[in-house]
Computed example of a mutant assay.
Amino acid sequence: MNIKILAAHALIIILWGSAFAGIRHGLEGYSPEHLSLLRLLVGSIALVIYAGKTKMKFPELKDWPVIFLFGFLGFAVYQTALNIGEQSVSAGAASLLISTSPVFIGLLGRIFLKERAGKRYWLGAFICIAGILLISLGSGGGIELGFGVILILIASLSESLYFVFQKKFLNKYGALPFTAYTIWAATLLMLVYAPGLRAQLAEAPAGATASAIYLGLFPTVIAYFALAYITAKSGASEAASSLYLTPAASFIIAWVWLGEAPTMTTLLGGLITLIGVSFTYFRMSMTEIEEAKTSY
């Protein structure tokens, strides 16, 4: 593994790990909906510039309804639900809850694609449930699932739906163009929240606005370019291999950036959750792994 590949891995881990702290910071000046819209607007503008320079082709008209559905699930619902959830859940805990996506991907594959889920998968799912309950307890939600935890799990499910059913279109258009299409579609859908954005831009602290711009440029766009670079050079399984370090990076960054010190209950719940996820992750085929971990 050469230094460029290592640097790309580090970039992905740091940028996606920082996204959760960036959201918490951005929420100090913006509502969850407006933060998502501003983040998508920034990402869309950057991708329009990239599309112009690379002469990216537009998708076929018949695929636009599906692209809007994917944009709705993979970005609009995912980001908004995550933002609302992080109003009451710490950045580190949120990153652990999002990392449950392989569990949802395995379940969706069983329901819709008739894939077999063996004992290892179900054992991992039950372990994850125990870990999630501990994370909820550490986040102040008691032993039951708190509202913020439920919303972040909905975000994880929405992201999983995005990844499970996108393979046909990734093969047709390529990863970067298809991601750009879905981000543009999500931005158009989120324009329903445009009223009030100008007022929040005027009133929000400069730091919150900087966080929103950072989220739109770096975790949303730059990290995905790094992932595409690793995939092109070393394959999809190599690109996915280091992403389990993202929650650890998220805890460290949130601690330094926001002063969020994780509780022992949250750390224990996170460890149990990652153990459970590992059971489902390592039973997945390389194709499933490729689709499971591409964007935070």
Rank of each mutant, 00 (worst) to 15 (best):
L151V: 06
I152L: 09
I154V: 15
I154G: 08
I154S: 10
I154C: 13
A155W: 04
A155Q: 05
S156A: 15
S156I: 03
L157E: 02
E159C: 11
S160Q: 07
Y162H: 12
Y162W: 14
F163Q: 03
V164A: 00
F165Q: 06
Q166N: 14
Q166T: 06
K167N: 13
F169M: 14
F169S: 10
L170M: 11
N171V: 03
K172A: 13
G174Y: 07
L176S: 05
A180Q: 13
A186C: 13
A186S: 15
T187Q: 03
L188H: 01
L189P: 00
L189S: 00
L189R: 02
M190I: 01
L191P: 01
Y193R: 00
G196Q: 03
G196M: 02
R198I: 14
A199Y: 08
Q200M: 03
Q200L: 01
Q200N: 02
A202P: 14
P205M: 07
A206M: 14
G207N: 07
G207L: 02
T209A: 06
L215K: 01
G216P: 01
G216R: 01
L217Y: 06
F218D: 00
F218L: 05
T220H: 02
I222R: 00
A223P: 11
F225M: 11
L227G: 04
A228Y: 04
Y229Q: 11
T231A: 13
A232T: 11
K233G: 12
A236M: 05
A239Y: 08
A240L: 08
S241G: 14
S241P: 07
S242D: 13
L245P: 09
P247Y: 01
P247V: 04
P247L: 04
A248Y: 10
A249I: 06
A249S: 14
A249C: 14
I252V: 15
I252H: 11
I253P: 04
I253W: 04
W255D: 08
V256G: 06
W257N: 03
L258V: 13
T263Q: 12
M264F: 15
T265A: 11
T265W: 06
L268H: 12
G269V: 00
G269K: 02
T273V: 08
T273K: 03
L274T: 09
I275M: 14
V277M: 03
S278M: 12
S278P: 03
S278D: 06
T280G: 15
